[in-house]
């Protein structure tokens, strides 16, 4: 993917020289200075679409090529024909959504009657969930309804979500839920 920048404004003699040209011989860094060089200069650039409302604004994600490879900046994509580089306050804060110390980064489990979360492994969590799904489904599977019509379903498991999934994720998600026989499949579009 190639990002073609059209946002550059014309500056006579604009170079990265910047502050150095004053030549006054003392530190002219602004308060809370970033490097004179743009912090995004050597970052990896990828385009994304904002995850909030459904206008579908484009944004550019600057990911550090060094260290832990995290996001250092996200701003509007000037080549996106809808938003042309602009964003609202939520979109402008996307960096803080991603680089957020409140994010949960390991699966967690809350046992019956427990008052706390416990960190668990993915393998354990997914295996246990599979067993729960099978137990609830098999104990409550309806081959036929009260009228004797074939229904092959379970109404003992419900699933809600999600408009936050990608299209492809939505498709495999619903195919799995329907293959399990769920009919209580709902999400944000209903509310």
């Amino acid at each position: 993917m190639k990002v073609n920048r059209r946002e550059f404004i014309q500056i006579t003699g604009a170079t990265a020289a910047g502050f150095a040209v004053t030549g006054l011989g003392f530190d002219l860094s602004p308060v809370k200075a970033h490097a004179q060089m743009l912090k995004t200069k050597y970052a990896k650039e990828t385009t994304t679409i904002c995850p909030y409302c459904a206008v579908g604004c484009g944004a550019i994600v600057h990911t550090s090529k060094k260290g832990d490879g995290r996001v250092i900046n996200i701003e509007g994509d000037p080549d996106h024909v809808i938003n042309r580089g602009s964003l609202c306050s939520k979109g402008a804060a996307l960096t803080q959504l991603t680089e957020n110390s409140d994010r949960i980064t390991d699966p967690m489990y809350r046992a019956p009657y427990s008052s706390e979360w416990k960190k668990v492994s993915w393998d354990w969590a997914l295996t246990e969930i599979s067993k729960r799904v099978k137990a609830s489904r098999d104990a409550n599977f309806e081959s036929k309804n009260a009228k004797g019509q074939v229904v092959n379903r379970t109404t003992a498991i419900a699933s809600v979500g999600s408009a936050a999934l990608d299209n492809e994720e939505c498709w495999i998600y619903q195919s799995l839920m329907r293959a399990l026989g769920l009919v209580y499949i709902e999400h944000q579009a209903r509310i």
């Binding site: 990828t46 679409i49 995850p51 459904a54 206008v55 579908g56 699966p107 019956p112 936050a164 990608d166």
Partner: peptide
């Protein structure tokens, strides 16, 4: 029993979404 599964945010994965 509650299982909490932590998901990646949108900029950490690839795929498509459909706007309004």
């Amino acid at each position: 029993e509650v299982f909490f599964l932590p998901a990646a945010v949108s900029v950490e994965k690839e795929g498509s979404i459909t706007n309004s």
